[in-house]
Amino acid sequence: MSSTTATPIADPHLHRDDEGSRLGMWLFLFTELILFGGMFLVFAVYKFIHYEEFHAAARELNSMFGALNTIILLTSSLTIVLSIVAIQKGQKLLSIFFQIITIFFALGFMVNKYFEWSAKFSHGIYPGSETLLEKSSGEILFFGLYYVMTGLHGLHVVIGVLLIGYMTYETIKNKVNSDKYVRLESAGLYWHLVDIIWIFLFPLFYLIA
């Protein structure tokens, strides 16, 4: 049973729904969460089977790199959320400033990661290397997961940089403004998720030694 009203139907492409956009972004974040969740499942099983070997392998990682990157990411999470507060308050320049700082931190994270990976490579620990293949199977799996998980996480950081960079452009062009900032919010949500994944990666890889 239904009736039609006298209101002509509205053009769906002009229809604006911020909460819907955020809901969509959240659903996307769930897929990212579960994507990494799948790898955490693998990690959990292998850590259970190769308990000692995982601890031995974790000793090879430098937890200072990990801790530093944790601080960088947490701070960048702060700056992106501050950029949203700034845009809500109509402080456009401040918002742009915070976004650029966020990008700066993200790049810092990648530089740090680069040095960390290079150090591992120079010790001959990389997928398929002879040094690694001589190690126990638990250690091979640990480093396999280490490279895949931190690598994919790094890829997400890079995507985040591109997203936030694009938002900065839109903020400058006033397409993101104090009335309409849901895109910046979505980019922010994405960035926080990257942070949350790191919050779990860090203790599991670096602190179980």
């Binding site: 919010e185 926080h192 942070d195 949350i196 919050i199 779990f200 860090f202 203790p203 602190l207 179980i208």
Partner: peptide, 23 residues
């Protein structure tokens, strides 16, 4: 307990990020 503590702290941190930073 090390892993359990680490994961508990990580969960608390995630909660804070979800509830506040992610609004």
């Amino acid at each position: 307990l090390t892993v359990i503590t680490a994961l508990t702290v990580a969960s608390v941190k995630s909660y804070l990020v979800l509830e506040y930073f992610m609004h």
